[in-house]
Write a protein that binds this DNA or RNA. Structure first.
Lengths: 141, 141
DNA sequence: AATGCAATTGCGAATGATTTGCAAGAAAAG
DNA sequence: CTTTTCTTGCAAATCATTCGCAATTGCATT
């Protein structure tokens, strides 16, 4: 299990690795991202960062998000509600089950499904670069 | 196999079923939708409808789209490129493979994957209402 | 510690997709 | 043909996200 602090260090390393500067704003945003265990959207991240440091702007949150996404440090998801949501990529790959009543996001992973996907793509003459599997459902009672 | 004309008739029935009016514009838009075999976005649908009848506006295309989506007659997809794309729901359920180079959308269906998904959701205590499986890949050479 | 300069910021304006308010136009019912 | 109510097109309004730009700030070098 990776800790929030380890994630933060890794983000910093990613930034410096390409000669980018470590600004106050970036530090705050990276920390917020590293601490997130949910799937926040850009505005939620901005709120959290702004609470820690009022000098952070929404534009910079978006810029930092894009930066990290390009480096593969975080992942962007476009669930059915329109706006983009983000999560760390240091954890193992997994898919999502979205609770239609609460909007909660549950992570899961199935080796079998991963394998089947690759097989299907191969049959169609394709190689999978990435995939998105989202189950939308309700709790059974 | 459902024909475009049958689909059109069904759309009309859906509209009239709730006491809505059958206007010229709606007729044109329904026809365009019924004839679509691809996954057009709102603007593409507007272009096609406008070509048939210059009195159709983009706003009405959006309004009609939402109408049909609410009735479950068409389905909205949010692929990773941001804008919404639509398709008829009269065909059997299927998933999508998106060609990253050409943006082409290939449909497929796997019984095994469907079954696995249901199993996974059940394990987590959920019942699937709908799901979305998108493979993003490149042609193998 | 002071200097220089390119990277970075916040702001507000721009964007692109989609929605909405409203007055004018057209169905359906009488 | 009239009335009532639904629909429309247009333009303005949203929403999420991006961009231009002048001001600021890291950071490598003195």
């Amino acid at each position: 299990m990776t800790t929030a602090h380890e994630r933060y260090e890794r983000f910093c390393a990613d930034i410096k690795a390409v000669g980018l500067r470590m600004t106050e704003q970036r530090k705050v945003i990276l920390r917020v991202l590293a601490e997130a265990t949910d799937h926040p959207d850009a505005n939620a991240l901005f709120q959290r960062a702004y609470a820690k440091d009022g000098s952070v702007s929404l534009a910079t949150v978006y810029r930092t998000l894009r930066l990290l996404e390009d480096k593969g440090a975080i992942q962007r998801h476009a669930f059915d509600d329109g706006r983009a949501r983000f999560e760390n990529t240091d954890t193992d790959h997994h898919d999502h089950l979205i609770d239609l009543d609460t909007n909660a996001v549950i992570e899961f992973r199935s080796e079998k499904i991963e394998k089947l996907q690759a097989e299907i793509a191969a049959e169609l003459g394709y190689e999978i670069v990435r995939h998105k599997l989202e189950l939308y459902g309700r709790k059974r009672k």
